[in-house]
Design a binder for these strands. Structure first.
Lengths: 338, 338
DNA sequence: TGATGATGTTGAAACGTTTCATAGGAGCGG
DNA sequence: CCGCTCCTATGAAACGTTTCAACATCATCA
């Protein structure tokens, strides 16, 4: 019972092995009576197809992987849900791999996925030196769609939100509220999103005479946000920024917690803008201004592009879809500095 | 280049196919010079092992799956991270499957995992009628560890937090603050956690003369929490509970948003207690009282039990590990009702 | 010197599918 | 009754590993 194979099903149904396979894969080519008999044998033996064998023969699998920076980050979970929706329709299975912003772990995941000959990978890389890797995957027939990264790569598809614009929107907003010394909280700068949002922030202050100083963090977590806010709060008044632009909402929420704890009032003493507009941003102690991204749509589009490339009847043209972010102003930054 | 196989590596290195396999799996049985030569051939051809073939031969895979109710729920993401930590040490790969609280989707995932002959499954089922299914998986050699469910199943391991105690703690706390009409927000009741937390709540009110009324929801999401709170707010004063115990924090945060919007003051007009103590609970507009569970530890333990069963040198004894929850009182319920 | 072991390597079988060329019949028009 | 096609069913090959008994070689020791 443990491992009934096609052979045993065939024996029991009194047909050849190939016929069973036909029942499974092209039922219309098998006569009704035979089909019936085979189906009964399958049920009786509790036969379940062995996917390894199928894949071995087929040369590729029916699973699609998504490798994300952090499973616990609501940004990625929404992307995952979007991708799932699309993939479900095409009988592909989505598995989620978590790199945890660790290049080593990311590498091991990619190795395993390559060994498994997955159908394709939706990928948000930790660092920037992944071109060779993806090139190799492509040669092996495993297409990649870069998620929220790597616009410009000509040899694969990508979907992204314009992070430079997002950073610019956030900081322009703070400038319009009268802030002249603004802190950028985020890191490591090796992460493209962080670098881009910072670039946008810089672009916004350029030529305005305002000052942008960086408060570098080791990651994009609530804990890192707390630590960063502690450092900011400890600065002498003359140096302390009057507003913080955080590279994501987790950082901003962490900062908000720490600032509240230390009696720094938001937005009166310090304005705060986050990024991602996660579900909790509006529910925070001080409702958080944030830059909203179409995360769900990002996931759907990434999956769609991958399927187009895989199912490729028509020769595939790589596409780069860029979504535009949107600033949502809430109380945490809604206070004009005189 | 696309698909170099062991055979081509062997040819290039001038050795037999079996020797290459030995280099890969038992390098110490191969002479240094040969090993070197084979390694070079592998590198030159860009050979990557085909996991399907390996699995087919081995009869089982090296991946472990975790099937969760909702990837976006911080409770599960923490469990996932705990499990990952343990599995990483044993060269197993964890893939996350999202049932989205949908029995159909759950079934399809289990089917796929069974076809893939995964090493084992960490599983939080949607409903209660999964015994047959798991029995079948077990017969096929795929062990399951129930996560946060199914204490009492004698034929498999489980890890759980005592949800009845958790529910009791929460409601006992509200009673001690003087509340006599308490609402339980949660659903569907088919989900074991919901049923257990409700049972605990009932146990707490039993014999106190206080009233417990249910506000049933269609899921455990922020949106469902909003909807539930809207219904509560619309009740006439005489019927409206003075406190809500929500089956998880997402519901509670949703409720908090909706109540704030409608001018119902928390905790003055209505006290609120959540469940899970997610990272955002303390950062909410009104810091949220909640029942904390050792989620990370839950994931670690589940993974450990699975590995013990799989790697089973010693015959495996199924275990049921129950963790105790802990009530964290914050501002949302910290107001004595006169 | 011949038996014994240790060390390295080989070749073939097996895992469970899918695919494909082929064959056995049945039905039918001529 | 022959030659055709159409419908079903068959058996063998192939996918890329791992495993294992057998073999070759060489040093060792009595």
């Amino acid at each position: 019972m443990a491992g009934a194979s096609i052979k045993q099903v065939a024996q029991r149904a009194g047909v050849s092995l190939g016929t069973v396979s036909n029942v499974l894969n092209r039922p219309d080519t098998v006569a009704e009576a035979t089909r019936q008999r085979v189906r009964e044998a399958i049920a009786a033996l509790g036969y379940v197809r062995n996917d390894s064998a199928r894949q071995l023969r087929a040369g590729h699998s029916r699973t699609v992987a998504i490798v994300v920076l952090d499973v616990a980050n609501p940004f990625f979970t929404d992307v995952v849900r979007g991708a799932e929706e699309v993939l479900e329709e095409s009988a592909a299975m989505l598995v989620v791999c978590n790199s945890g912003e660790d290049a080593g772990r990311e590498g091991r995941h990619l190795d395993a996925l390559e060994e498994q000959r997955v159908q394709g990978i939706l990928f948000t890389p930790v660092g920037d030196d992944h071109a060779d890797r993806l090139e190799r995957l492509a040669r092996r027939g495993i297409p990649t769609v870069l998620v929220d990264r790597g616009a410009g790569a000509t040899s694969r598809c990508s979907v992204a939100v314009d992070d430079v614009t997002g950073g610019r929107l956030a900081v322009a907003h703070l400038l319009s509220r009268g802030h002249r010394r603004i802190g950028f909280v985020g890191g490591p700068f090796g992460i493209g999103q962080v670098a881009d949002r910072y670039a946008g922030a810089q672009a916004a202050v350029a030529g305005t005479g305002a000052e942008l100083r960086t408060v570098e963090t080791t990651g994009l977590t609530v804990a890192a946000g707390r630590a960063a806010a502690a450092r900011v709060a400890a600065l002498p008044d003359a140096e302390r920024p009057t507003a913080l632009f955080c590279a994501n909402d987790l950082l901003a929420l962490g900062a908000l917690q720490e600032l509240t704890l230390r009696g720094v009032r938001v937005p009166h003493d310090l304005a705060l803008v986050g990024y991602d507009d996660i579900e909790f941003a509006g529910a925070a102690a001080v409702p958080l201004s944030s830059v909203r991204q179409p995360r769900h749509e990002l996931g759907r589009t990434a999956a769609r592009l991958l399927l187009e490339e895989t199912g490729g009847a028509t020769p595939h043209r790589h596409q780069h879809v860029i979504f535009q972010p949107e600033l949502v102003v809430r109380h945490s930054s809604d206070h004009a500095r005189r």
